[in-house]
Design a protein around this nucleic acid. Structure first.
Lengths: 185, 185
DNA sequence: GCACCACACTGGTCAGACCAGTTCTCGTTT
DNA sequence: AAACGAGAACTGGTCTGACCAGTGTGGTGC
């Protein structure tokens, strides 16, 4: 039997510690790969394996020549990854449409109690603008989601929008915006 | 300007392709790191960076001396990871709880019209079993989601469950199973 | 004071080495 | 012929050192 904790796992822990104890905040710079390596008594390769992993998770962003920066990982980029993969095997369009509607209705319900009148004008302006249907839909619900107080659901909704975009080019239109606005009034 | 696609990203794509086109299924073995490296004209380091990343995502599992295997990644431990890394943030927890409820209610609504009586007995059996609360909750809704006809939403629900599991250790509160069953009857 | 350039630093990538496990092969033993 | 076992061949884990390509900086010359 061996200790099967891999070095790159330890590096992850260390980075976690850095964030917690050293007070590194989103946007801040992390120590360089070489620095981390010597600090942790690990090779640069191992450090890189760890960094690449959490980069994929969207927790950090690296810029060649500059450095590695902690990111605002509350942006749920993970969801993106998961979605990419989840949608791959399940992706019936109906499922997706239904899911999107579910989230949109959720947003509408939540918005009902919080929305301010001036916002309604803005919504009307959007649906009467001459942008593409897709643009309109996006803008319309983006504003509504502002009142839904749930960033997570909003993110998921956006992801689904993107996917839908990739799947079927049009449709969706004739969305009953007017009815929604009446509900909100 | 340069192509800023990193090698390890390409490796990820390639693995993706392998899974899709070569029909590699969960449990199957992936080519060895060295093989992948030569196949992709990349260094082993780069291949490893990619592998480590998706290992962290729980998509593969590696065993020294044996190889790298595609995993049944239905329950991503990303969530767990994120949980440890990301959030002590109550906002997130609330978002998550709300989202889970939204999906569960969706499932219940859909199940109402399709569920068969014998299934109700099964549901009752589950909530009266002596498994952990979390287990019960999982099994309970897994069955209900069977009737919801939406694999996508089911998947997302499962992901969120895992996520939540990583967040707060204890309990799936006093979920009103009885009330749900009454609704379904 | 300003412009410019060399140098130090950062990430990106590679090649090669060695260790530590597992699996396979093939000759020896029974 | 079947069972065994030693070793080769393979797999992942880790490290070192090298080089490239960007970025930042400080000093020099104007």
């Amino acid at each position: 039997m061996v200790q099967q904790v891999k070095v790159y796992q330890e590096v992850l822990d260390e980075i976690h510690r850095l964030i917690k104890e050293e007070g590194i905040m989103p946007g801040d710079k992390l120590p360089s790969e070489r620095t981390l390596a010597t600090q942790l008594n690990a090779s640069r390769s191992s450090v890189r394996e760890a960094l690449r992993a959490i980069e994929l998770l969207g927790m950090i962003v690296t810029r060649r020549g500059e450095g590695t920066y902690l990111r605002d990982y509350k942006s749920f980029q993970v969801m993106q990854l998961l979605a990419t993969f989840v949608l791959q095997d399940t992706q019936t369009v109906e499922n997706l449409t239904e899911a999107i509607e579910l989230l949109e209705n959720f947003a509408i319900e939540k918005a009902k109690v919080k929305i301010v009148p001036s916002e309604l004008d803005e919504l009307k302006r959007i649906i009467n603008s001459n942008q593409s249907d897709r643009e309109k839909h996006h803008l319309f619900f983006e504003r509504i989601f502002n009142y839904a107080d749930n960033q997570l659901i909003f993110h998921i909704w956006r992801l689904m929008q993107d996917f839908e975009e990739g799947l079927k080019t049009d449709v969706k239109y004739n969305y009953p915006y007017e009815r929604v606005i009446m509900q909100l009034e």
